[in-house]
């Protein structure tokens, strides 16, 4: 059984991860943060990440390709690294996401994505 702190520890243990946090994107609150980035500029980061999430979800809602109602993960490739936004699936109560900041030089995006998936799956029992 993972608690929030353990969950963040697992994310931070992934190779090349610079920072990780759990964000409630409905209210924009950071529920837990570790590493660089979100921890030091928590407010502006989680606000930015939350906006990103809302924008993508809105765009997805109006898109016609595939099954846009379900966004599993958002990856932003930026100059300062990869940013992974992973909404946590689970009942109606869930509106939280994992956010991972990955170094572009050291980190392996595909491996990190799979690990983040499995950590997210352990977050909720349903």
């Amino acid at each position: 059984m993972l608690g929030i702190g353990k969950c963040l520890d697992h994310l931070m243990a992934l190779h090349g991860v610079l920072g990780a946090s759990i964000i409630d994107y409905a209210s924009g609150s950071t529920l837990g943060a570790a590493g660089r980035g979100p921890a030091s500029h928590q407010e502006s980061y989680s606000a930015g990440v939350t906006t990103m999430m809302h924008t993508t979800m809105k765009a997805a809602a109006l898109a016609t390709v595939g099954n846009p109602a379900h966004v599993e993960q958002i990856v932003i490739t930026a100059g300062n690294g990869f940013h992974l936004l992973h909404p946590l699936a689970g009942g109606t109560q869930t509106r939280m996401m994992l956010y991972v900041w990955l170094d572009r030089g050291i980190g392996n995006l595909a491996v990190t994505q799979r690990r983040v998936n499995s950590i997210a799956a352990q977050f909720s029992v349903n």
Partner: peptide, 21 residues
């Protein structure tokens, strides 16, 4: 609740933080 397996530690902690805020 966590012991009974109905909910994970992370979920109840998250609910606690949200309720507190």
């Amino acid at each position: 609740l966590v012991q009974s397996g109905l909910i994970t530690q992370a979920e109840i902690e998250a609910a606690g933080v949200l309720a507190l805020y």
